[in-house]
Nucleic acid binder design. Structure first.
Lengths: 151, 151
DNA sequence: ACACTATTTGCAACTGGTCGCAATTGCATC
DNA sequence: GATGCAATTGCGACCAGTTGCAAATAGTGT
């Protein structure tokens, strides 16, 4: 939980207030080592603050993402997932057809990331990235049998 | 409109039916040279088919995207935007803080795209991509004055 | 400890998008 | 041009997430 403390510090340093709501959202994320959906976060937070409102959770998550303390990934499952920002990170290849998710190493992105920073001064959040496309299986399958597509 | 015809062909070839709903969604997208939100597409389609249901539009768009005829971009404005798939394409750098959008050349992605295909057999839809992060202006600003962040 | 005020929260209404299912329809075959 | 049936649509309920606004409160200064 020293991590938790650090996070609280970053928040305050960036000029934001530390409310019990934010504190508990942070705690939940810091304590978990998996991806969490907003819904799951809300449920866990409510164990400590039963009446906490969902907009508070969403607003906290938005802020934490903006501050770079939390990463957000849309794996195309209809809900966004949050995770404490840890280094280094993996990325995801998400197949639009079969919805499979494949992890890839973060180093694949380093060149691009550096180039964006040097050319445009843009600090890309490429720490936890989802790329959509068609996986090997689905590419070959559709080439043979146009009609079939699983889901 | 020859383009429109080609699109219809691709649809049929992939084993899908050509319904008036799909046809009009396609026509609207093919006729427009800007990004269109689903809502805008729905509105335009209704000029021809006044009672067309929104789910039909969404389902058509999903299909067209899957077939690669249409590209979909989430610029973080709370709504996804659709566009006819034209080559070559630009990409977008979206600042999480000031929400500004900056276009960049598609060639920045070619290496990555090739690598994903050769290493994983994954055909990434990198034709129209949005990368989130912090733009130059916002990086320097937050370093100086932690509190300020426009929106 | 108290007052002040900008930030944050709770609430409830709203929005964009999805889903299950019954009714309809494109199109292949006769 | 009629038949059959799987693909597709319409519908309404639903879901995740957002927003505007009035009420509450963290943190600053006294």
């Amino acid at each position: 939980m020293t991590q938790h403390l650090e996070l609280v510090q970053s928040l305050r340093q960036a000029g934001h207030r530390l409310t019990p709501q934010r504190e508990s959202v942070l705690a939940v994320i810091a304590d978990s080592h998996e991806h969490l959906s907003a819904e799951e976060i809300l449920a866990r937070v409510r164990k400590r603050y039963p009446y906490l409102n969902k907009s508070a959770v969403y607003r906290s998550l938005e802020l934490l993402t903006e501050l770079g303390l939390v990463t957000l990934t849309d794996l195309g499952h209809g809900r966004v997932e949050y995770e404490l920002h840890r280094h280094p990170h993996h990325h995801h290849l998400v197949c639009r057809k079969c919805k499979s998710v494949q992890q890839i190493d973060h180093r694949l992105f380093q060149n691009l990331q550096k180039k964006l920073e040097s050319d445009f001064g843009f600090r890309a959040d490429l720490d936890h990235f989802a790329i959509f496309g068609t996986c090997r299986k689905c590419s070959t399958r559709t080439a043979k049998n146009p009609k079939r597509h699983s889901h």
